[in-house]
């Protein structure tokens, strides 16, 4: 259930960005978060946490949109590059252990859509 903690961090980040918008918006329509698949986030849990944590706040009713990024990496031994399937840290081309991750660990507040 790290989704609830991650959602709390999202709302803190959202507060920071929302308060900086000039002129102040009249409401929040949607928020988009980029999530790397390595975080093993269950979308329904995160959406449920967002609904619960924004109830009775200025963000109530806003939509949370999730954009997942695949786990990709490159191999220093054979120069392979691509999407990594389990086993996650083994090069599918040459079997070397220790593929360097390129994407998959993202956890970003990407954009807001505000009502003006």
């Amino acid at each position: 259930m790290h989704e609830f903690s991650i959602c709390s961090l999202l709302i803190k980040a959202l507060d920071h960005e929302y308060d900086a918008i000039q002129p102040p918006p009249t409401g929040l329509k949607s928020v988009t978060v980029m999530v790397g698949e390595l975080h093993q986030i269950v979308p329904d849990y995160l959406l449920g946490a967002f609904t619960a944590l924004t109830a009775d706040t200025r963000y109530e009713g806003a939509e949370l949109k999730l954009e997942f990024t695949a786990i990709t990496g490159s191999c220093s031994a054979c120069e392979w590059q691509g999407t990594i399937q389990p086993p996650l840290f083994v090069c599918p081309s040459c079997d070397q252990v220790g593929v360097d991750l390129i994407t998959g660990k993202e956890l970003f507040l990407q954009s807001l859509e505000v009502k003006t």
């Binding site: 920071h16 507040l109 859509e113 003006t116």
Partner: peptide, 17 residues
């Protein structure tokens, strides 16, 4: 009502970090 999209790219783990 009009809407405006704002790009931010803020790391959610930033406060913990």
């Amino acid at each position: 009502m009009t809407t405006q999209e704002i790009k931010v790219y803020r790391d959610l783990m930033g406060a913990n970090e």
